[in-house]
Design a binder for these strands. Structure first.
Length: 732
DNA sequence: CATTTTGACGCT
DNA sequence: AGCGTCAA
């Protein structure tokens, strides 16, 4: 049963904060002499001056645009300062921007629920803060309003002839006869003003913001007055705003769906959408998308601000356009190794700073096949369980690539002759890590059961098998393929371009290796399951390879918001109320585990406390077999460390406090707490549950039950429903 | 085949 | 799991 907020009309106060030309600001902070000069950030300077990925406002005045080439920018604006993106391992390295983004997030998260929407964008739910302010120090009680707040833009508030817009804004903010929603909004304006000032003070970055009753409108508003300004959308201005708004300006409608709306329905503005019935839209675009369209045309969006300060995945990629396309396995392996190094490093930071581990490794590539037939692309993506350690990630990634390549070539062994070129060219590679979950916090009942409530120093050896053998085996096993020695390979690297053909490009070998891989797959339960998934590619899915079906499917990818938010709310509260997070984490680790014969467990004595896993001194102190640390820098976690599942509570706290002072993004620890509830209950392996003591089984069953029923949801029909989430009646 | 490099999410 | 869309 949906419960209304006790203390409000249901209106939310949502802000969208967007850093102005963020990369440029980051570079200008690094090099203050660039402030005030026309500046752009560019990557890869060699070809036509590189591509612009961020343009400062001074440069925009000259007509410089994002994604011009550096050369073009120079043409329109000869004085432009072009700053190069940092390069590491031969590729663009965006980590300085990511870190700068984290700085901002940690400030913005202070006043309410905060969702990191991208590297430079954040959503905030300030409802509670706004309500608190309204109750304690409402704007109407203020004698003076901060000068900065008076620079706000209020949509629909016409500046009077005397055009002292600040006086007008002040009057609007402090009206005592205002609608409750407007009063809340006024509070939101003041709060956001303060936040933005704080961001500027602490980071030197300016940002723009939108304040409204939902995410969609806040996002729209934040872009209306830039840079370093904020815009609010009172309820009464929504219709006026949307009516004439070009459909393509709406988030999600900038692509094919927006085009389809224009071309097939003749919809130019959001207002035009109002002419279509919900049924009509559903019929044309599917139920979910249709409902969503009908709603957004009316300014309705129930999408919640998710409490998430950290990314859900990490990726590292590089493109190899035109003549730079990779043509040999050796060159591919080289670049994959570079990408994996970066990825591994970032995974280590994440583990160290946020106590999270990723569970899935995925390889993406794009390729051309220049065989006699078509120059088709669509290189298949492949994923596998993620094993920590740079060398492991590199090994697994390369195996994924080979699996993909085999499938890509279609298993008919086009043998490459001598130095003939391979018939394929790789134009992009990327490696990513996903399914990132917090490592255990160690306070749950399951921990108490196994370790007793007051033991903190326990190691994984004390846990049952299902929990401790957390290091997943790759299907390859470490011995299963004799790869090109990567150091040997690196030595041969003359530059980015020239590559020596290697016998490894030979498809016969490639095939043999895959087979070997399959055969040698260790008799690990998990491994069995996954290797099946990995490698039937060559055998079974060659059929699916040639599928060129015209993919005209129902384009309904926009799940209607009410359904989604409702379900999530059920899940989350079910978990939260029971304090389930740590237990779920145990299951996640069980999911990783191999039951027996895992050679990685031989090194159990090398277990490090997780909080220390990255420090160099610790690596030396603890006796870790040399081959486990082979890959040096990025290799923070010997795989046995993954077994270290239960972290003493006090260690976590300690790590959190120490790193808040030293780390750039101290906010990330906050994240760990708020995120730890978000595990998916449905991912628990039932067979694992069976092995647990009765009391815990019961606890788990209690959580499972409420998450069972999928609901159909009906739209709210009163205006109050328009701006508040999850006020949907469940139809039964 | 020169918009790169991310990242989120929906569909099947 | 893998593919596609969207955004910045």
């Amino acid at each position: 049963m949906p419960v209304a907020r006790p203390d409000s009309s249901g209106a939310r106060i949502i802000a969208h904060v967007d850093l102005d030309c963020f990369y440029v600001q980051v570079e200008q902070r690094k090099q203050p002499k660039l402030r005030g000069l026309p500046t752009a950030v560019v990557q890869y300077n060699e070809w036509k001056g590189g591509g612009l990925i961020a343009v400062g406002y001074e440069a925009r005045n000259y007509g410089v645009k994002r994604s011009m080439r550096g050369d073009e920018a120079k043409e329109v604006c000869p004085q432009i300062e072009l700053v190069q993106v940092p390069v590491a391992r031969g590729k663009a390295d965006l980590s300085s921007y990511r870190n700068a983004g984290s700085e901002v997030v940690s400030i913005l998260a202070r006043k309410g629920r905060c969702e990191r929407a991208s590297i430079d964008e954040v959503y905030l739910d300030l409802t509670d803060a706004a309500e608190a302010m309204l109750a304690q120090t409402p704007p109407e009680s203020l004698d003076e309003v901060d000068e900065e707040a008076l620079k706000s833009h209020i949509l629909g508030l016409e500046s009077k002839d005397g055009n002292d817009s600040k006086a007008t804004v002040k009057e609007w903010l402090c009206r005592c006869d205002a609608d409750h929603r407007d009063k809340l909004l006024a509070c939101g304006v003041l709060i956001v003003t303060e936040l933005r000032m704080q961001v500027l003070k602490e980071t030197e970055f300016t940002c723009s913001a939108g304040i409204a009753h939902n995410k969609m409108l806040a996002k729209l508003a934040s872009g209306m007055n830039k840079p370093a300004q904020q815009t609010t959308v009172p309820f009464s201005s929504v219709k006026g705003l949307l009516d004439s708004l070009p459909i393509k300006k709406m988030k999600q409608l900038g692509g094919k769906l927006g085009t389809s709306l224009q071309n097939e329905l003749g919809v130019t503005t959001v207002g035009d959408l109002l002419k279509f019935s919900e049924d009509k839209l559903q019929e044309r675009y599917g139920f979910n998308t249709g409902t969503w369209l009908w709603n957004i045309a009316r300014g309705i969006s129930g999408e919640e601000v998710q409490a998430r300060l950290l990314p859900k995945s990490h990726g590292s990629g590089k493109s190899f356009p035109g003549p730079r396309a990779l043509k040999t396995v050796a060159s591919v392996q080289h670049w994959l190794n570079q990408l994996c190094e970066e990825l591994s490093e970032r995974l280590c930071s994440d583990l160290e700073q946020n106590k999270r581990i990723a569970h899935t490794l995925t390889l993406h590539a794009s390729a051309f096949k220049s065989s006699d037939s078509d120059s088709r692309k669509k290189f298949p993506s492949k994923s596998c369980p993620l094993r920590y350690g740079t060398a492991k990630i590199q090994e697994d990634t390369f195996n994924l690539f080979q699996a993909g390549l085999r499938e890509f070539l279609g298993s008919f062994g086009v043998k490459t002759q001598g130095s003939h070129y391979s018939g394929w060219r790789i134009t992009a590679l990327s490696v990513s890590a996903s399914k990132i979950v917090p490592v255990l916090s160690g306070t749950c009942s399951i921990t108490k059961y196994f370790n007793g409530p007051d033991k903190f120093g326990s190691t994984s050896e004390q846990l049952p098998d299902n929990f401790i053998d957390a290091a997943p085996l790759s299907p390859s096993g470490s011995e299963s393929y004799s790869t090109l020695n990567s150091t040997e390979l690196q030595n041969e690297l003359p530059g980015e371009q020239v590559w020596i053909e290697h016998s490894m490009a030979d498809l016969g070998q490639l095939e043999m290796k895959a087979n070997t891989w399959n055969r040698l797959d260790p008799s690990c339960s998990i491994s069995k399951q996954t290797s099946g998934q990995w490698f039937h590619s060559g055998t079974e899915s060659s059929s699916s390879l040639d599928q060129n079906k015209p993919q005209n499917r129902d384009d309904s990818r926009m799940r209607s918001v009410p359904i989604k938010s409702n379900q999530q709310e059920h899940k989350k509260s079910a978990l939260k109320d029971k304090g389930a997070s740590s237990i779920l984490n145990f299951f996640k680790s069980g999911d990783l585990s191999c039951s027996s014969g895992n050679h990685d467990t031989e090194h159990a004595e090398t277990l490090l406390p997780l909080g220390d896993c990255l420090s160099e001194s610790n690596k030396k102190q603890v006796n870790i077999p040399k081959e486990r640390l082979d890959n040096s820098t990025g290799d923070c976690l010997s795989e046995s460390n993954q077994n270290q599942v239960n972290i003493p509570k006090e260690r976590l706290a300690e790590a959190a406090t120490t790193s808040t002072t030293t780390d750039r993004c101290g906010s990330d620890q906050i994240q760990q707490r708020s995120e730890s509830w978000k595990l998916r209950i449905e991912e628990i392996d039932p067979s694992v549950i069976d092995e647990l003591p009765k009391e815990i089984q019961d606890e788990i069953q209690a959580w499972l039950r409420p998450s069972k029923q999928p609901h159909r949801v009906k739209r709210g029909f009163t205006i109050a429903d328009y701006f508040s989430p999850s006020k949907n009646r469940l139809e039964q």
